[in-house]
Design a protein around this nucleic acid. Sequence first.
DNA 1: CACTTTAGTTCACGACTCAGACTATCTAAC
DNA 2: GTTAGATAGTCTGAGTCGTGAACTAAAGTG
Lengths: 393, 393
Amino acid sequence: MTVRSEPSQHAGMRASNLALVFGEVARTGPVSRARVAANTGLTKSSVSGLVTDLISAGLVGESAPAATERGRPATALTLAPGGAAGLGLEINVDYLAAMVTDLTGAPRYHHVVRRDNRDRAVDEVVADLIEVARTAAASAAAQGLPLAAACVAVPGLAVDGTVVRAPNLGWTRVDLAAAIQEATGLEVDLENEANLAALGEMWFGGHEHEGGPLRDFVHVSGEIGIGGGIVVGGEVFHGAHAGAGELGHVVVVPDGPRCGCGGHGCLERMAGQQEILARAQVATMNELTHACEASEQAALDAVADAGRHLGVALSSVIKLLDPAAIVLGGAFATLAPWLTTATAASISHHSGAAEPPRLLVSGLGSDAAVRGAAGTVVRRVIADPAAHLARRP
Amino acid sequence: MTVRSEPSQHAGMRASNLALVFGEVARTGPVSRARVAANTGLTKSSVSGLVTDLISAGLVGESAPAATERGRPATALTLAPGGAAGLGLEINVDYLAAMVTDLTGAPRYHHVVRRDNRDRAVDEVVADLIEVARTAAASAAAQGLPLAAACVAVPGLAVDGTVVRAPNLGWTRVDLAAAIQEATGLEVDLENEANLAALGEMWFGGHEHEGGPLRDFVHVSGEIGIGGGIVVGGEVFHGAHAGAGELGHVVVVPDGPRCGCGGHGCLERMAGQQEILARAQVATMNELTHACEASEQAALDAVADAGRHLGVALSSVIKLLDPAAIVLGGAFATLAPWLTTATAASISHHSGAAEPPRLLVSGLGSDAAVRGAAGTVVRRVIADPAAHLARRP
DNA sequence: CACTTTAGTTCACGACTCAGACTATCTAAC
DNA sequence: GTTAGATAGTCTGAGTCGTGAACTAAAGTG
């Protein structure tokens, strides 16, 4: 079967215009109906009707008219923070996390449970996550925030609600979405942690590009493994089987040592945390940071070396994907002061580009993925308010 | 400014449904109105109205009713071959080419002028291409084929109708689209040759994937340089500045020799035609093929070596883009018998994937790009017939 | 020859957006 | 203080388009 689009009907037309208006309100803060009409190309009367629907659905709020310049003062429209909320969850190697954001994307609840999940039974971890999710949902309810859905960040490949594999957790074929859906009653989506971190960075990282938000970039997340999130036109690029963006397994040393993935000379094998720590002769990332701050040569060399390997991988990324920027996140953000010089030099050496994409550093740290997860839910409501209303009339 | 979509209006609704119906007719060969209605989800009456428009526009033809099973026999709808046609042009290092295809994608005119364009003045080459285009347009007119537009394949980066750079031709900033547009009166689009070859391969190469046409793949075109075309969901992936897909400059030997692009150890530097020929100690690709057919060791080694390097680059492609297949075109298609074993082994070694994407060989040869160019024009008409009608009422 | 089945058309209806008139509410000028 | 001008928002009639059901058309079956 090939893709076949839906027929355009009146309801679809209205849904599309509803999204257009709602998106405009979301993008341009407090706005008048008149401005929305001018910006979207719809007529004032159409906007009025659509806004009425959005207000009665509780998605948009109206503030008291305030005089601005001349003429009748405009009533300002804003996203109603209480209109819909998103629950973001995250399973990772050494923690579980939950976050609730309101419609504006503002965090309203955030909780992290630190615990190594590698050696535990899958069911136990899932049970813990359900507990975390329930607590978060209760907090949302207490704040009067209606959760629209949930999204879970997993450190591996997720397809159709199932964790196909999560190498660093040792998981294969775990039907996670169904379990959480049953426990919370929410629709649940799974998505790769690196991809959600990239989205979180895009929505909440504050990066700009040519006047607008950054919409075409690659996010490098250095957790225990090295992940990549490719964002194209504001959307995650998934590839044919949702396996795209595996930056950690790009070949950087063709005759290099065998990697856990079965390949040879992968970036993760050459510049992953394990390798860096071993070379720097320290045990933890904290120690590594301290050693770098103390300018210890072994540590600096280890990080610079990783930076060079990263540069090789990113050169290929640049040639293949032509991103507008590259964002370093996770451990690489922490190590950025000692890393980026080597990485930039390596990119320049290998790609020879006169104007390589900008190399940015994440400001969100390890919260990027949960924020992205919660944000995904909320963004989906904004992208298609009609679908959201159809689900809860 | 950020992207903002158009408001949905009645005209847009009709345009969208027109495209839906037209696309269905194009996809499923001769079909009845009733089947189109069932397949698209539109009602019979809507389809009737839309089909009436398409027929009176000359885009769809109606054949005599033919009894099939029970009931009233259906009148079959097909693409009207004479409804619209596309002009594809190609500038390459050692030839110029033109092709006209009708609405069904069938070639109706094809002409290739072999001549080395490297040492000639830009204006001369452009003048020659215009001549080639005019002759092709005359042939189309003689056959009663109304050209909808033209599309030119260029061996380099093209943005907004301008050839920004074409390294192997030595061109920079050539305003090609305007020149051809003025000469022929047609709307002219430029696109990278490797990308068009990929599209040509998709539309006319006959590859299948899971029952449908292949829509997510990477096409490798080995001409004088090595180009790559990334196709995602049936569309070319361009990246932020239209520079994506530069497979030839993916790093395959991190400490390798300097490449013409300014980088080091690029695939093109290690496995381009120049390198293969030198290693095999022959002068032309023809000689190389003969040497391989004669099982001469130097030639076989040179090709296998190139295949290994190609495998390294493709491993990174697979990890980053997760394509459903990889199609080898151009010189790599010719060399496939002596190349693919080494390439497949290298991919397996470096990516360690249990189920790597299929490695296919192009059947179109060096015509892929012109066919893709002409096909692009026609496909655009099929994708948005309303826009096409608006241009010529 | 009636009955069934399928294809395609016609037409009243409803859902939408549009355009423009109309009302509301402010500032600026006299 | 009043009036003109500007801007915001609502209301109403007209036009467009898909829907759904009734209707006509053209075959096969018993």
